[in-house]
Nucleic acid binder design. Structure first.
Lengths: 218, 218
DNA sequence: TCTCTAAACTAGCGGTGTAAGTTTTCATCC
DNA sequence: GGATGAAAACTTACACCGCTAGTTTAGAGA
């Protein structure tokens, strides 16, 4: 097949299909030939639109990150904005868990990740946090969200009572974690996020200072 | 070469060499042939000692996790124990950052990870936390530590001022993050960990209750 | 001493990312 | 309107990947 009358591929179509394949079969199952086959095309044709496979994955990661909502930093109290952002961030990642390990390794040059960092940092500084602190807070929350989306704690346990009872005295109930995977992970996230925000609020009261500087939109 | 007089390979030697290669060249650069070559052997010989490449990586992950110190839970106040554990955990992971993405995806059947979970959970329950809460707390801290070791926040930024100034108004100083990578990541970790523990302590005071139940070794 | 297993080997399969070169279509400029 | 050059598909091919199969020989146990 020579050059077709209307292009068979576009960057968006490739990214969309790649994400669907990753969601369905995992990151390891995505090869350029399989992706191309899903698009009705031969493998190397993808290289007319992307330079490398990693470029494709970067674009996929960018669209996933693009779904994160940071609008709260523009109008809400910083604690509320952080909480809303963290939950939105987590939802965006857990909607596509298979891409998370790739995504979590370097926000660098990806526009959506930069825009997110920009909004968070800007919002915190505007709320009165010193720049260095704002950087640390944004990073700390990113650690927490990425870690929670990456390694489901509960998913790691197997549904086999005997495996744990023998050697790990306190894990007698661990096999039940597998059943309640989602609620355990969400509960742990909720608990940890609340604790983090509580601690940050205390820090804010102590270092940034008075009540009047904690205005919602400054 | 037939069977040698003394075995050229042992599981420990394979694991040790694999970890060294991963540290030096990254997870992606570890192939069975390269690993075997580093051991002075042909590729498939490894399969006399491990069933699959993933088995090798699991063993590597287990030795890395094995370096985490949970001894604090046996003798110290739970807040101190959590803090010491989290830092030890982080040190163990950041000593071998390239294996972290593999390691963070499922503690499941790996003995060292199970022993760690057992110690943490047991220590928290002994301190008076309800079992479900103890599970959540352990998971939340794991999220935070794994996230911090996985995606260095600072490493993702490039040392090019112009890249950020144009589109991201608040990230004008972001290129400087690359220089101070380690201190930024450690600072963010310290801040986040302290906030988390502060929040948990407040929760403890509110739900678990009185002062006398917060005894160090119960 | 005989036998079986262990631990190395070689050969090879199907799959991977991607480079190189080919063909044809479309858009653009004289 | 015909020439030109880029675009977008193709085929072929390379080096590498994880892993299987079968072979050879050393050592351990009956």
């Amino acid at each position: 097949m020579p050059r077709p009358r209307r292009p068979l591929l576009t960057r968006d179509l490739i990214v969309e299909t790649a994400l669907a394949l990753i969601d369905a079969d995992g990151l390891g199952a995505l090869s350029t030939r399989r992706l191309a086959a899903a698009l009705g095309v031969q493998g190397p044709s993808l290289y007319n639109h992307f330079a490398t496979k990693d470029d494709i994955l970067d674009a996929v990661a960018d669209t996933v990150t693009g779904a994160v909502d940071t609008s709260g930093f523009a109008s809400r109290d910083w604690v509320v904005a952080l909480r809303d952002w963290a939950w939105s961030y987590r939802r965006a990642l857990t909607a596509h868990p298979n891409i998370v390990p790739y995504l979590a390794q370097g926000p660098g040059r990806r526009p959506a990740a930069l825009a997110m960092a920009d909004a968070v940092y800007g919002g915190l500084v505007r709320a009165g946090w010193p720049p260095a602190r704002a950087t640390h807070i944004g990073a700390a929350l990113r650690y927490f969200v990425a870690g929670s989306a990456l390694g489901s704690f509960a998913r790691g346990f197997v549904e086999d009572p005997e495996l744990y009872a023998a050697h790990y005295p306190h894990l007698r109930q661990a096999h039940r974690l597998a059943e309640h995977q989602q609620s355990v992970d969400e509960g742990a996230f909720a608990l940890g996020l609340d604790a983090l925000l509580h601690g940050l609020a205390a820090d804010y009261a102590g270092t940034v200072g008075t009540v009047e500087s904690a205005r919602p939109n400054g």
